[in-house]
Each structure stands twice: as C-alpha cells, then as structure tokens.
Simulated assay, not measured.
Amino acid sequence: MSADPPVGRARRTRRKAAAPVAGSLQDLKALKRRIDDAAQEQARLEAEQRATEARLRRERDLFALSVGPVFPLQRAVRAPVPRPKPEPVPLQRQRDEQAALREALSDEFDVESLLDTDEALSYRRSGVGIDVVRKLRRGGWAIQAHLDLHGLRRDEARERLADFLREAGRQGLRCVRVVHGKGNGSPGRQAVLKAKVRTWLVQKAEVLAFTQARGSEGGAGALVVLLGAPPSSV
C-alpha cells in the first residue's frame, strides 16, 4: 500500500484537531445558559421578595394611618375595680324618729303632784337636790338661750319647745329660759301655755329642774330650765 500524500494527511489532522474545539464551544454555551437561567431565577426571587416587603410595608402604613400613633402599654398599678356600695343606713332618720317618739308630749300628764308647793311651782327630777332648785332660782347658772312661745297655739308651741330642747342638747347647753306668758291676753285671762309648758317639760328626760324666772327675766311669765345630757339615741 502506498503512503498518503502529504496534503491528505494534513486535512485529516485538522479534522481531528477541530473536533475537541467544537465540543468545548457547546459546553460553554450550555454553561452560559445555566448561568443565565440561574441569574434570571435569582432576579425573579429577589423581585418577589421586594414585592412582598412592599406589600407588608403598605399594610403596616395603612394600619398606622387608621389607628393613629401606637404606644406600648406601661406596666402600672392596677386600679381597683369599683364595687357597688351598700345602701346607706338612714341613721339620722332613725334617730329623728326615736327623738320624735320621745317628744310625743302628752297634754294629759299630771304634773301637779311633781311640782314643789311654793309660789314658783318649781320642779326637780328624782335624785336632784333641793339646793339645785334654789341655785337655779337665784340665777346661779347663766342663761344660754331662750324660747318665746307668745302668741303660739298649743300644738305649735309644743313642737317649738321640743325642737328648742333638742337643739339645746345638741349644743350642750345647760341653762335656758322658756317664755310662755302670763295669760293676760288669753280668753278668761287663763294662762293656758303656762300650765302646758310645765306639763311638757317634766316629760323630757333631759330636763333636770325648772323654776319660775326672776322678775328681771320674765317673772311669772317664764321658766328657767336646767338641762342635763340628752338620752342616747342609739
């Protein structure tokens, strides 16, 4: 067999050398496509992430605009829960009612047997010495308040006297004067209030004694009354 001519051998050599070069180009193209695909996927993912963050930011901003400024709650002392208060007990009304029962003064009370048989018709409660009445008659206690019942009807005078004594007890007064009049202006010149005032006074537990006032203090038309502590209303 004859040897190949030089030209033929050169062509075969070029064909053999060109084959690896073509394969390398195809590999590079494939690699480039994979790189491009990866870059596009990365770009897509980043775009989606930016879109999600933008959506969340819009929602957060919308909430802030809707509710206004938001501040964290501070840990503070808990306020006590208000509880319904019990109904108040009307103690004062009860005391007033009890006082009204005590002040239900009777006009039929027989006072004559309790009065000392002297011109002043003095009175002293059991346990009070006669010297107390004498001192009262002589003005041994300063008169701290007075009540004038002139011109009042019997029922009105009784209520005024009860109110006066109750207020005197609240103020802690010891000696008061009650002016009932001499009865000169009454029908038949009968001193109706004069007798009734004595009857009412002896029924009051806080009245220790009374006697006719001295001439300068009203004489036969008034009484000077010595008071003690009022009875407890409890």
Rank of each mutant, 00 (worst) to 15 (best):
P20L: 04
A79I: 10
G127Q: 01
E59Y: 09
E59T: 10
R137C: 05
R14T: 10
D118T: 04
E41S: 14
R75Q: 05
S66D: 12
R78C: 04
L114T: 00
V133F: 12
P6Y: 13
D131W: 06
R11F: 08
E112C: 00
Q26L: 09
E48F: 12
R125D: 01
A10P: 00
P80V: 06
L62V: 13
E103T: 03
E41L: 15
L121F: 01
E119P: 02
E59F: 05
E53S: 12
L25N: 10
D116Y: 01
A104G: 00
A104C: 02
V81L: 13
V128Q: 02
A99Y: 05
R44V: 11
R58H: 14
K135E: 14
R75Y: 04
R55Y: 10
V67R: 11
V7N: 10
Q26R: 13
G68V: 09
S122A: 15
I35F: 06
G23S: 03
G68M: 06
S122T: 08
S126L: 12
V132L: 11
S122V: 04
R78T: 09
R93I: 01
P82M: 07
G23L: 04
Q40P: 13
K85G: 07
Q40D: 10
S113V: 02
G127V: 02
G127F: 03
T52S: 08
S126M: 07
R55E: 10
P84R: 15
D118Q: 02
A18K: 09
G23A: 07
E41C: 12
P90Y: 14
L121R: 03
R57T: 05
R78V: 07
D61H: 13
P72N: 13
R44A: 14
Q94S: 08
R33P: 10
T117G: 12
E59K: 11
